[in-house]
């Protein structure tokens, strides 16, 4: 049992931890604050910024550019769509590897992970040309496919580690009870793995939402998600701090909340179960 730490020590640690936590969080805090300031105030010194008036003007302006909504929906469709498709492919695959392991299962998993190591840039040219020739450039369908494929190894790995923890006897019991393979996966495995599937889903939505190589290369406007929308501010428009901040806040807020919500599962997921 832990002993009671002295209160002085606890106070020192508290101050240190909060200061560092504040420092790390500060850039995010700062864009949230700047988003509620006028353009004129946003470029002043930090103290002046803090004591200037608050306004929703920048949010109105960003809304007025009107394409924010489209980019937001593109982000939602791309991240949720690619994750759901990846799950549909990965659940049966993970079932196979977790409950009917063969001699090659470990190798297969390692190979899947290794496809994740292939640098995207190595296939940039052919992907670009394929997309161009099939008319998929700037289309959501093409990008959903690519995001599905790049996240598939991680989805399989995560589900595998979660499934491994479900005792095989329960699935055997279902088999003895007369369940077909479909019923076994649908009525027994999936409901039992709901927490694992949910966190896999969350993590992959986050990764897909923030993916910024293929989304930048393969979209321009129609299918462009928020990564592209924000990247457009890298031009001189970036100097409009307040609008940039408001837009950034809107781009990261949904995922930040989702991320906080799932941070525990995130660790297990991203380390493929190697750290619990």
């Amino acid at each position: 049992m832990a002993r009671k730490a002295s209160n002085t020590r606890k106070a020192v640690v508290t101050i240190a931890a909060w200061s560092i936590g504040f420092l790390i969080f500060f850039p995010i805090l700062w864009i949230i604050i700047l988003g509620f300031k006028s353009e004129g105030d946003a470029i002043k010194t930090p103290l002046q910024v803090l004591f200037s008036d608050w306004t929703l003007q920048s949010y109105h302006d960003v809304q007025a550019r009107s394409n924010y909504g489209r980019h937001f929906w593109n982000s939602v469709i791309l991240s949720v769509g690619s994750t759901v498709i990846a799950l549909a492919i990965a659940i049966p695959a993970a079932w196979s590897m977790a409950f009917v392991p063969g001699r090659r299962t470990k190798d297969l998993l390692m190979w899947m992970l290794s496809t994740k190591m292939m640098p995207a840039v190595g296939v940039l040219v052919p992907m670009y040309l394929l997309f161009r020739d099939f008319g998929l450039l700037d289309s959501r369908i093409g990008l959903v496919g690519v995001l599905t494929l790049i996240n598939l190894p991680i989805v399989v790995w995560m589900l595998y580690t979660y499934f491994k923890e479900i005792p095989g006897e329960i699935l055997e019991a279902a088999r003895m009870d007369g369940a077909s393979l479909k019923s076994e996966i649908l009525y027994v495995l999936t409901p039992m793995a709901v927490p694992g599937i949910a966190s896999t889903m969350l993590l992959n939505i986050i990764l897909a939402w923030n993916e910024a190589f293929w989304t930048l290369q393969l979209t321009t406007s129609q299918a462009a998600p928020l990564t592209q929308f924000i990247a457009s501010y890298s031009s001189p428009e970036g100097l409009f701090y307040a609008k940039l901040s408001a837009a950034s806040t809107m781009a990261i807020a949904p995922i930040l909340i989702l991320g906080w919500f799932s941070q525990k599962q995130l660790v297990r997921g991203l380390t493929f179960g190697a750290v619990k």
């Binding site: 005792p167 006897e169 329960i170 055997e172 019991a173 009870d177 369940a179 077909s180 039992m192 709901v194």
Partner: peptide, 27 residues
């Protein structure tokens, strides 16, 4: 297994944790 008309009780009981007792028995 399903076609053999046999029922099995496992060492770990192998109950379905997400179902009520009623649903377990009725499965």
């Amino acid at each position: 297994p399903a076609k053999r008309r046999l029922a099995m009780v496992f060492q770990s009981y192998a109950l379905y944790p997400h179902m009520s007792v009623r649903k377990n028995i009725a499965f």
